[in-house]
Design a protein around this nucleic acid. Sequence first.
DNA 1: TTTTATTGATTGAACGTTCAATAAAAAATG
DNA 2: CATTTTTTATTGAACGTTCAATCAATAAAA
Lengths: 207, 207
Amino acid sequence: MPKVGMEPIRRHQLIKATMEAIDDVGLADATIARIASRAGVSTGIISHYFGGKGGLLEATMRHILADLGDAVSQRQRMLGTSDPRAHLRAIVEANFDRSQISRSVMKTWLAFWTTSMHRDDLMRLQRVNDRRLYSNLCFQFRKKMPRDEAQNAARGLAALIDGLWLRGALAPEGLNIPRAICIAFDFIDEQFNKTADHAGNLEQACR
Amino acid sequence: MPKVGMEPIRRHQLIKATMEAIDDVGLADATIARIASRAGVSTGIISHYFGGKGGLLEATMRHILADLGDAVSQRQRMLGTSDPRAHLRAIVEANFDRSQISRSVMKTWLAFWTTSMHRDDLMRLQRVNDRRLYSNLCFQFRKKMPRDEAQNAARGLAALIDGLWLRGALAPEGLNIPRAICIAFDFIDEQFNKTADHAGNLEQACR
DNA sequence: TTTTATTGATTGAACGTTCAATAAAAAATG
DNA sequence: CATTTTTTATTGAACGTTCAATCAATAAAA
């Protein structure tokens, strides 16, 4: 069976098997024996292509983040307009994109989030992604509202997206994607309404 | 040193040490040796009082959930009114209550959230707590809006709270509590505004 | 003297890593 | 075209480490 050019195939196989294993038994019990067996290869191959279990986990996380980044920029490019509302909607949709909402991807993402609190390399990856989402949201909101309002709108929307995800990952019935998108869309509209309503006596006190 | 009546003292010591250890090195590296050493006792004592590591983790989670439940019901009781807005604000404040926002509690909570996806006992604990928050929110929103609107408002607010928490746990600067509360308060007001604005042509399509 | 509390060395299981061995394909050779 | 040689891909047993659990021994209080 051994042929030349196996590396990209094996890498993808193993990353996929890693996510499936985490979905199945959790990161704590996702041993290299289990991952290798699920990918239909031996344990040694993991060290061969990834240098060890840590390398495989980092590669898996990079893969998920790259998918998310692609989903966002792809939808942004498809947009002919610079209308902030449309852009924000596109970002929300990308975050609930097909590549992101499969059970295994969701659970893997969450597992990494937790472990990234104690591993500098994963933490850095996570934060790069985080900041990109936040500044992206902020930039769009700023087209229609002052600086601090836009920042809070961005903070709120980012939290809402993550929260919907988090709860979707835990719920036995899974994440209801259309509903999640709708709740996020509503949030966007409310943020714009709030600013538009200058006559209203809403408190906008958040600092 | 051994006296009678040590059990409640030791249990609390060990639960506290567990949260500190998780804050410090993460759940994966929170070994019983590390926890015991942090509590200033030997490893054997954990099995003696909790029957094993699993028992200690479950007890720790129960402790956190009980604290959260207490914070909510305490604030509810302090409320003389039945005004839904005041009640919702109280729930939000309780969720960012002092007992909940310390770094160690936050990280422990998140660690449990992740592992509860693969352990039935922890999952059940988590879901009981989840449902209580959701029905609580739903009940309050229903005082001012129709059923499905209230459900989506509750889903959104619950997600927003969890999301703010999640991001606060990851951020190096920690969670900005007043700001988080303010964002959540704004969300509540927007939900009420949306319903009040019957003349407006907002789409309220979420199912 | 009995009970309660605690210790910590020991044990066995599980895990990630390593590496010599192997097998197949590709390249070189005649 | 047939062959040897080299390269690439892969295996899995062996090894060393780490961890949770156990339990006989001990010490203080009742």
